[in-house]
């Protein structure tokens, strides 16, 4: 659409310059994490530290327990993603592929859920997790985070399954496969694009999740996720700026690297959500 060469160069210059500004906070964060605390305060706009203070990382990782926070976040995120995929694919399959009495009612309910005023559910949710005795394990935050109806994902799965040709099922039925076998062996593998979209969207949400883990783990340091641990670190050591930057880098960099390696899938996955 844009034809002249100079316009093209202009666009590249604009995209590049703006792009640098765009990700500069992260660059700043990484280099700040390698400064001494004093250098952090006095080096002004200078980006590169004089000596790279790698021990900031070992301190954050071990002393400030970011290792614990990190693995908690990994377990929390992966479990939540798996639970959500299982729940919404099963629901989506039943709604999209099988005829059964009461289907319409359930469909209407699913859509209606999107529009119910939710109230502030974190307080009762918190009480509930305690009442179930899950408050002392990471299971508590996993259950709380993956609970609820994932309407968007359910609808994605339902419309995907509804639109698959009938012949697939019939062939499997002739071979004597039951509903469960058809679902796990035939349908779920076919729905990989939807599984991927669900996984990626839920991964991004859960990894960044703050309120649920905050309320559920604020009194239990051993269960905290990175976001909560980071917030607590800043509150406890208000003047350890380079430690703060190191902790933030530990928290953000792994996901950024995963994203950069797999960026095509991330972006296509997210695009998949809105397309449907």
């Amino acid at each position: 659409m844009i034809t002249t060469k100079s316009a093209r160069v202009m666009i590249h210059v604009f995209l590049l310059l703006f792009g640098i500004v765009w990700i500069y906070p992260f660059v700043w964060m990484v280099f700040s994490s390698l400064k001494t605390n004093k250098e952090f305060l006095t080096s002004g706009t200078k980006l590169i530290p004089e000596d790279f203070q790698w021990q900031n990382y070992s301190e954050a990782w071990i002393t400030a327990n970011f290792s614990g926070y990190f693995w908690n976040t990994v377990i929390f995120t992966v479990s939540t993603v798996i639970i959500v995929i299982v729940l919404s694919s099963l629901t989506g399959y039943a709604l999209g592929r099988i005829d059964f009495p009461g289907k319409k009612t359930i469909m209407i309910c699913v859509v209606a859920i999107m529009f119910i005023p939710k109230g502030y559910t974190i307080i009762p949710l918190f009480k509930l997790v305690n009442a179930m005795g899950l408050d002392n394990s990471i299971l508590g935050i996993i259950v709380a985070e993956s609970s609820g109806a994932h309407v968007l994902f359910i609808l994605m799965f339902a419309s995907f399954f509804a639109n698959l040709p009938k012949s697939i099922e019939e062939a499997a039925e002739i071979d004597g496969a039951g509903v469960l076998t058809i679902f796990t062996k035939v349908m779920l593998p076919l729905s990989m694009p939807i599984v991927a979209t669900t996984a990626i969207m839920q991964f991004i949400w859960t990894w960044s999740s703050f309120l649920v883990p905050l309320v559920l783990t604020i009194s239990k340091p051993e269960l905290r996720t990175l976001a909560v641990g980071m917030e607590n670190f800043v509150q406890t050591y208000a003047v350890d700026f380079s430690g703060m930057a190191a902790g933030a880098t530990i928290s953000l960099l792994p996901v950024m690297i995963i994203f950069i390696i797999m960026q095509r899938y991330f972006i296509e996955g997210v695009a998949g959500a809105v397309k449907s």
């Binding site: 918190f126 305690n130 002392n136 309320v215 604020i218 009194s219 607590n232 509150q235 406890t236």
Partner: peptide, 19 residues
Amino acid sequence: TQDTPEAETQLRTALSEGN
């Protein structure tokens, strides 16, 4: 010992958990 910078929220949640 555990440092509790957000002492009130921390104690309140612990209290309602019976923890």
